[in-house]
Computed example of a mutant assay.
Amino acid sequence: MKRALITGITGQDGSYLAELLLEKDYKVYGVRRRTSTPNYDNVEHIKEQIEWIDGDLGDLASLIEAVRISQPDEVYNLAAQSFVATSWPQPIATAQMTALGVTNMLEAVRIIKPDARFYQASSSEMYGKVVETPQKENTPFYPRSPYGVSKVYGHWITVNYRESFNMFACSGILFNHESPRRGLEFVTRKVTNAVARIKLGLQDELRMGNLDAKRDWGFAGDYVKAMWLMLQQDQPDDYVISTGETHTVEELLEIAFSYVDLNWKDFVVIDQKFVRPAEVDLLLGDCSKAKVKLGWNLEVDFKMLVTMMVEEDLKRLKVIQVTI
């Protein structure tokens, strides 16, 4: 039985990855950070199948202990301060977790289990002010937020450990990936949740920022399969994981509102508060390397993704209404 250690296991990606690994008969260990109100919503259905270890990316000693206990064959470092907007008011906290936290995790693996295979969650936000379109593995980075800058550090320190210590360390440069488990602060879930609330008479309007921003949006459940595939290869490498298509925020609104027979223009209000200090206008990934070398393929397209999210938010809110 293979053993996997996952940081960020209660998040969107971590929960889908844990499901995938459990289906493949892995023994799954999850690092959880102590909070006054633990949130297991995304993993409640598999919570008892996970071996929980207390730890924090900012605390090397706890990560060393986590690796010692789990003795993993594979380590997936998904934990981060992952909301771009929060990285401006909290740049230092973002750097400590999203950048230096990667070094701590790599050090723990190097010291205790150097033969473990390591996956780092890199991000398309590293490309930022893009210098070429589409973006490939060798496209130069030009991050436009403290989050993006921190992810660049995490990416390159992973490359450095691979080359310095001959560790099997990979980075997946994941473009935007969404699901019904996405946090409410992210634009896709903000929209689908608001659409469901408006349809049910719980909300009157939706305040948005830049509707022209284009993103390469995919389904998180598809993307975690690519993470696993990276660690099954003969040699470690980095891969762009994306759909190869872009859609504007306006398209997102159109699909989400039309699914419940509403016109988005009747409810959306532009609010400058939601416009970023430095905007990333276009992100589009070239995932051809992953498709060829990993044999990875997408199963959920953009329209399917958005309607799935609206439907799940409708179900969730209806249950809450009945309960109340």
Rank of each mutant, 00 (worst) to 15 (best):
L5Q: 07
L5S: 00
I6Y: 00
D13W: 02
Y16R: 15
L17I: 12
Y29H: 14
N42S: 13
E44G: 10
H45Q: 08
E48Y: 13
E51A: 12
I53P: 11
L57V: 15
L63F: 09
E65K: 15
E74C: 08
V84N: 00
V84D: 04
T94P: 12
Q96R: 09
M97E: 13
A99I: 10
T103P: 01
T103W: 11
N104L: 06
R110F: 02
Y119E: 01
S122W: 03
S122L: 06
S123V: 04
S124W: 04
E125K: 07
E125N: 15
V130D: 12
Q135E: 01
K136H: 13
K136L: 08
E137C: 05
N138G: 14
T139N: 02
S145F: 00
S145N: 14
P146R: 03
G148W: 03
V149R: 02
I157F: 05
N160E: 09
F165Y: 15
F165T: 02
A169Y: 12
G172S: 14
R181N: 07
F186D: 14
K190I: 03
V191G: 07
V191L: 00
N193T: 10
K199G: 11
G201N: 06
L202C: 00
Q203A: 03
A213K: 10
D216A: 05
D216Y: 06
Y223Q: 05
V224K: 02
K225P: 10
K225F: 10
Y239K: 09
I241M: 12
E245T: 05
L252T: 14
I255L: 05
A256S: 15
F257Y: 08
F257L: 02
V268K: 01
F274M: 01
V275L: 06
A278T: 14
A278E: 14
D281L: 13
L282S: 02
L283G: 00
G285T: 14
C287W: 08
N297W: 09
F302M: 01
F302H: 04
L305C: 03
E311G: 09
L314M: 10
R316K: 09
L317W: 10
L317I: 05
V319N: 07
V319H: 15
V319M: 13
V322T: 15
